[in-house]
Protein backbone atom coordinates (compact mmCIF):
# COMPACT_ATOMS: atom_id res chain seq x y z
CA UNK A 1 0.00 0.00 0.00
CA UNK A 2 1.35 3.39 -0.87
CA UNK A 3 0.85 6.46 1.18
CA UNK A 4 -0.95 9.19 -0.69
CA UNK A 5 1.48 11.97 -1.39
CA UNK A 6 0.10 15.38 -0.66
CA UNK A 7 1.74 18.63 0.25
CA UNK A 8 1.40 20.03 3.73
CA UNK A 9 -1.42 22.55 4.11
CA UNK A 10 1.09 25.16 5.19
CA UNK A 11 2.77 24.99 1.80
CA UNK A 12 -0.37 26.19 0.03
CA UNK A 13 -0.60 29.33 2.16
CA UNK A 14 1.25 32.38 1.05
CA UNK A 15 2.28 35.64 2.61
CA UNK A 16 -0.30 38.28 1.67
CA UNK A 17 0.58 41.92 0.86
CA UNK A 18 -0.98 42.87 4.22
CA UNK A 19 1.46 40.58 6.00
CA UNK A 20 4.49 41.90 4.11
CA UNK A 21 3.53 45.56 4.63
CA UNK A 22 2.48 45.05 8.25
CA UNK A 23 5.61 43.04 8.98
CA UNK A 24 7.83 45.71 7.42
CA UNK A 25 6.22 48.56 9.37
CA UNK A 26 6.35 46.59 12.61
CA UNK A 27 9.95 45.67 11.91
CA UNK A 28 10.85 49.36 11.42
CA UNK A 29 8.97 50.22 14.62
CA UNK A 30 10.95 47.67 16.63
CA UNK A 31 14.17 48.71 14.89
CA UNK A 32 13.51 52.36 15.81
CA UNK A 33 12.92 51.45 19.43
CA UNK A 34 16.02 49.26 19.75
CA UNK A 35 18.20 51.42 17.48
CA UNK A 36 17.54 54.50 19.60
CA UNK A 37 19.68 52.98 22.33
CA UNK A 38 22.63 53.00 19.95
CA UNK A 39 22.13 56.12 17.90
CA UNK A 40 19.81 59.10 17.59
CA UNK A 41 20.44 62.17 15.42
CA UNK A 42 20.61 64.37 18.54
CA UNK A 43 20.59 63.58 22.26
CA UNK A 44 17.08 64.00 23.64
CA UNK A 45 18.13 64.89 27.17
CA UNK A 46 19.98 68.04 26.12
CA UNK A 47 18.06 71.29 25.68
CA UNK A 48 19.15 73.61 22.87
CA UNK A 49 16.99 76.68 23.34
CA UNK A 50 18.86 78.58 20.61
CA UNK A 51 17.40 76.24 17.99
CA UNK A 52 13.88 75.94 19.37
CA UNK A 53 10.74 75.56 17.23
CA UNK A 54 12.65 75.10 14.00
CA UNK A 55 10.61 73.74 11.08
CA UNK A 56 11.85 70.56 9.35
CA UNK A 57 15.20 71.17 7.68
CA UNK A 58 18.30 69.32 6.56
CA UNK A 59 19.80 69.60 10.06
CA UNK A 60 16.57 68.69 11.90
CA UNK A 61 14.54 66.43 9.56
CA UNK A 62 11.35 66.71 11.56
CA UNK A 63 12.04 70.08 13.21
CA UNK A 64 12.63 70.89 16.87
CA UNK A 65 10.31 71.52 19.81
CA UNK A 66 10.00 74.47 22.19
CA UNK A 67 13.07 73.31 24.14
CA UNK A 68 15.09 72.86 20.96
CA UNK A 69 15.02 69.05 21.14
CA UNK A 70 15.12 67.19 17.81
CA UNK A 71 11.62 65.77 17.04
CA UNK A 72 13.01 62.87 14.97
CA UNK A 73 15.21 61.77 17.88
CA UNK A 74 12.30 62.06 20.33
CA UNK A 75 10.07 59.92 18.12
CA UNK A 76 12.78 57.26 17.92
CA UNK A 77 13.25 57.23 21.70
CA UNK A 78 9.48 57.44 22.26
CA UNK A 79 9.06 54.22 20.29
CA UNK A 80 10.90 52.41 23.13
CA UNK A 81 8.23 53.34 25.59
CA UNK A 82 5.31 52.48 23.28
CA UNK A 83 6.88 49.17 22.38
CA UNK A 84 7.74 48.14 25.93
CA UNK A 85 4.34 49.04 27.38
CA UNK A 86 2.36 47.42 24.55
CA UNK A 87 4.44 44.22 24.43
CA UNK A 88 4.41 43.66 28.17
CA UNK A 89 0.70 44.50 28.43
CA UNK A 90 -0.15 42.06 25.61
CA UNK A 91 2.10 39.47 27.27
CA UNK A 92 0.31 39.92 30.61
CA UNK A 93 -3.03 39.32 28.88
CA UNK A 94 -1.72 36.32 26.97
CA UNK A 95 -0.06 34.63 29.93
CA UNK A 96 -2.92 35.19 32.39
CA UNK A 97 -5.93 35.21 30.08
CA UNK A 98 -5.15 32.06 28.08
CA UNK A 99 -4.97 29.68 31.06
CA UNK A 100 -8.22 31.16 32.39
CA UNK A 101 -9.93 30.60 29.04
CA UNK A 102 -8.58 27.04 28.79
CA UNK A 103 -9.74 26.33 32.33
CA UNK A 104 -13.22 27.68 31.61
CA UNK A 105 -13.52 25.51 28.49
CA UNK A 106 -12.17 22.39 30.21
CA UNK A 107 -14.21 22.59 33.39
CA UNK A 108 -17.42 24.20 32.11
CA UNK A 109 -20.07 24.69 34.76
CA UNK A 110 -19.35 26.93 37.71
CA UNK A 111 -15.71 27.67 36.85
CA UNK A 112 -16.74 28.70 33.35
CA UNK A 113 -19.51 30.97 34.65
CA UNK A 114 -17.23 32.59 37.25
CA UNK A 115 -14.42 33.27 34.78
CA UNK A 116 -16.61 34.58 31.99
CA UNK A 117 -18.75 36.78 34.27
CA UNK A 118 -15.50 38.13 35.72
CA UNK A 119 -14.42 38.93 32.17
CA UNK A 120 -17.76 40.67 31.55
CA UNK A 121 -17.19 42.73 34.69
CA UNK A 122 -13.79 43.95 33.50
CA UNK A 123 -15.23 44.73 30.06
CA UNK A 124 -18.03 46.71 31.67
CA UNK A 125 -15.56 49.27 33.06
CA UNK A 126 -14.60 52.07 30.70
CA UNK A 127 -11.01 51.05 30.14
CA UNK A 128 -9.46 54.51 30.11
CA UNK A 129 -11.29 55.47 33.32
CA UNK A 130 -10.02 52.35 35.07
CA UNK A 131 -6.52 53.06 33.81
CA UNK A 132 -6.79 56.58 35.18
CA UNK A 133 -8.05 55.16 38.48
CA UNK A 134 -5.15 52.72 38.72
CA UNK A 135 -2.58 55.38 37.93
CA UNK A 136 -4.29 57.85 40.25
CA UNK A 137 -4.02 55.38 43.13
CA UNK A 138 -0.60 53.96 42.32
CA UNK A 139 0.89 57.06 40.73
CA UNK A 140 1.71 57.67 37.05
CA UNK A 141 4.53 55.83 35.30
CA UNK A 142 5.27 53.18 32.70
CA UNK A 143 4.82 50.22 35.07
CA UNK A 144 1.36 51.34 36.12
CA UNK A 145 0.42 52.01 32.51
CA UNK A 146 1.40 48.40 31.75
CA UNK A 147 -0.78 47.12 34.58
CA UNK A 148 -3.72 49.30 33.55
CA UNK A 149 -3.57 48.17 29.92
CA UNK A 150 -2.66 44.58 30.76
CA UNK A 151 -5.70 44.08 32.99
CA UNK A 152 -7.93 44.74 30.00
CA UNK A 153 -6.04 42.26 27.85
CA UNK A 154 -6.73 39.37 30.24
CA UNK A 155 -10.46 38.94 29.44
CA UNK A 156 -9.78 39.43 25.72
CA UNK A 157 -7.43 36.45 25.63
CA UNK A 158 -9.62 34.46 28.01
CA UNK A 159 -12.58 34.84 25.66
CA UNK A 160 -10.64 34.00 22.52
CA UNK A 161 -9.06 30.96 24.18
CA UNK A 162 -12.35 29.73 25.63
CA UNK A 163 -14.31 30.13 22.41
CA UNK A 164 -11.75 28.30 20.31
CA UNK A 165 -11.14 25.65 22.96
CA UNK A 166 -14.85 24.89 23.34
CA UNK A 167 -15.16 23.94 19.68
CA UNK A 168 -12.06 21.75 19.97
CA UNK A 169 -13.41 19.93 23.02
CA UNK A 170 -16.14 18.40 20.87
CA UNK A 171 -13.61 16.94 18.43
CA UNK A 172 -13.11 13.23 18.17
CA UNK A 173 -9.39 13.51 18.85
CA UNK A 174 -10.12 14.99 22.24
CA UNK A 175 -12.49 12.08 22.84
CA UNK A 176 -9.67 9.74 21.79
CA UNK A 177 -7.35 11.43 24.29
CA UNK A 178 -9.97 10.95 27.01
CA UNK A 179 -10.22 7.29 26.09
CA UNK A 180 -6.42 7.24 26.44
CA UNK A 181 -6.96 8.29 30.04
CA UNK A 182 -5.77 11.87 29.80
CA UNK A 183 -7.26 14.44 32.13
CA UNK A 184 -8.48 17.95 31.25
CA UNK A 185 -5.16 19.59 32.14
CA UNK A 186 -3.06 17.32 29.94
CA UNK A 187 -5.54 17.52 27.06
CA UNK A 188 -5.58 21.32 27.28
CA UNK A 189 -1.79 21.46 27.18
CA UNK A 190 -1.21 18.81 24.51
CA UNK A 191 -4.18 19.12 22.15
CA UNK A 192 -6.08 22.34 22.78
CA UNK A 193 -3.33 24.93 23.28
CA UNK A 194 -1.24 24.02 20.18
CA UNK A 195 -4.37 24.13 18.04
CA UNK A 196 -5.50 27.55 19.24
CA UNK A 197 -2.01 29.05 19.29
CA UNK A 198 -2.42 30.66 15.88
CA UNK A 199 -5.59 32.44 17.00
CA UNK A 200 -3.81 33.68 20.11
CA UNK A 201 -0.87 34.98 18.09
CA UNK A 202 -3.23 36.90 15.82
CA UNK A 203 -5.08 38.31 18.83
CA UNK A 204 -1.68 39.17 20.34
CA UNK A 205 -0.81 41.35 17.34
CA UNK A 206 -4.18 43.12 17.58
CA UNK A 207 -3.84 43.71 21.34
CA UNK A 208 -0.29 44.94 20.71
CA UNK A 209 -1.61 47.65 18.39
CA UNK A 210 -4.33 48.58 20.88
CA UNK A 211 -1.64 48.76 23.56
CA UNK A 212 0.32 51.30 21.50
CA UNK A 213 -2.83 53.38 21.16
CA UNK A 214 -3.72 53.05 24.85
CA UNK A 215 -0.21 53.98 25.94
CA UNK A 216 -0.37 57.08 23.74
CA UNK A 217 -3.72 58.00 25.29
CA UNK A 218 -2.46 57.51 28.85
CA UNK A 219 0.69 59.55 28.32
CA UNK A 220 -1.39 62.18 26.50
CA UNK A 221 -3.36 62.74 29.71
CA UNK A 222 -0.11 62.64 31.68
CA UNK A 223 -0.45 59.20 33.23
CA UNK A 224 2.12 57.33 31.14
CA UNK A 225 5.88 57.62 31.18
CA UNK A 226 6.93 60.73 33.09
CA UNK A 227 9.16 63.54 31.80
CA UNK A 228 11.87 63.72 30.70
CA UNK A 229 11.37 60.28 29.07
CA UNK A 230 10.01 61.10 25.61
CA UNK A 231 6.67 59.54 24.71
CA UNK A 232 4.44 59.97 21.67
CA UNK A 233 1.31 60.78 23.62
CA UNK A 234 2.95 63.51 25.66
CA UNK A 235 4.62 64.99 22.59
CA UNK A 236 1.10 65.42 21.17
CA UNK A 237 -0.08 67.01 24.39
CA UNK A 238 2.87 69.42 24.44
CA UNK A 239 2.27 70.28 20.80
CA UNK A 240 -1.37 71.20 21.04
CA UNK A 241 -0.88 74.80 22.24
CA UNK A 242 1.66 75.38 19.47
CA UNK A 243 -0.19 73.70 16.64
CA UNK A 244 -0.91 77.07 14.96
CA UNK A 245 2.72 78.02 14.38
CA UNK A 246 4.59 74.69 14.78
CA UNK A 247 2.29 72.06 13.24
CA UNK A 248 5.18 69.57 12.76
CA UNK A 249 5.26 69.04 16.51
CA UNK A 250 1.81 67.43 16.35
CA UNK A 251 1.95 65.93 12.86
CA UNK A 252 5.02 63.70 13.25
CA UNK A 253 4.25 62.01 16.59
CA UNK A 254 0.66 61.60 15.38
CA UNK A 255 1.91 59.98 12.20
CA UNK A 256 4.17 57.70 14.23
CA UNK A 257 1.17 56.46 16.23
CA UNK A 258 -1.05 56.02 13.16
CA UNK A 259 1.57 54.21 11.10
CA UNK A 260 2.67 51.85 13.87
CA UNK A 261 -0.93 50.96 14.82
CA UNK A 262 -1.79 50.46 11.14
CA UNK A 263 1.26 48.27 10.67
CA UNK A 264 0.41 46.10 13.67
CA UNK A 265 -3.19 45.70 12.52
CA UNK A 266 -2.05 44.71 9.03
CA UNK A 267 0.37 42.25 10.63
CA UNK A 268 -2.50 40.79 12.67
CA UNK A 269 -4.69 40.42 9.58
CA UNK A 270 -1.85 38.92 7.60
CA UNK A 271 -1.03 36.44 10.37
CA UNK A 272 -4.69 35.48 10.55
CA UNK A 273 -4.70 34.66 6.84
CA UNK A 274 -1.46 32.76 7.20
CA UNK A 275 -2.19 30.82 10.38
CA UNK A 276 -5.90 30.43 10.89
CA UNK A 277 -6.79 26.95 9.68
CA UNK A 278 -10.48 27.82 9.45
CA UNK A 279 -9.80 30.24 6.61
CA UNK A 280 -7.52 27.77 4.90
CA UNK A 281 -10.30 25.77 3.28
CA UNK A 282 -11.84 28.74 1.56
CA UNK A 283 -9.03 29.03 -0.96
Amino acid sequence: MSVAASSSPAASRRATPALVLGGTITGLFVLAALGSYVWTPYPTAVLDVAHRLQPPSAAHWLGTDHFGRDVASMILVGARNSLAVAVVAAGVGLLLGTPLGLLAAARRGLADEAIMRGADLVFAFPSLLLAIMITAVAGPGAINAIIAIGVFNIPVFARVARGAALSLWSRDYVLAARVAGKGPGLISAQHILPNIASLLIVQGAIQFSMGVLAEAALSYVGLGAQPPTPSWGRMLNDAQTMIGFAPWLAIFPGLAIVVSVLGLNLLGDGLRDLLDPRLDRRR
Binding site: R171, D172, Y173, L175, A176, Q190, H191, P194, N195, P277
Partner: peptide, 8 residues
Protein backbone atom coordinates in the same frame (compact mmCIF):
# COMPACT_ATOMS: atom_id res chain seq x y z
CA UNK B 1 -11.37 9.46 9.94
CA UNK B 2 -10.58 13.17 9.49
CA UNK B 3 -11.61 14.50 12.90
CA UNK B 4 -10.22 11.85 15.19
CA UNK B 5 -6.57 12.90 14.97
CA UNK B 6 -4.89 16.04 16.23
CA UNK B 7 -3.72 17.54 12.92
CA UNK B 8 -0.47 18.73 14.50
Amino acid sequence: PYGSFDPR
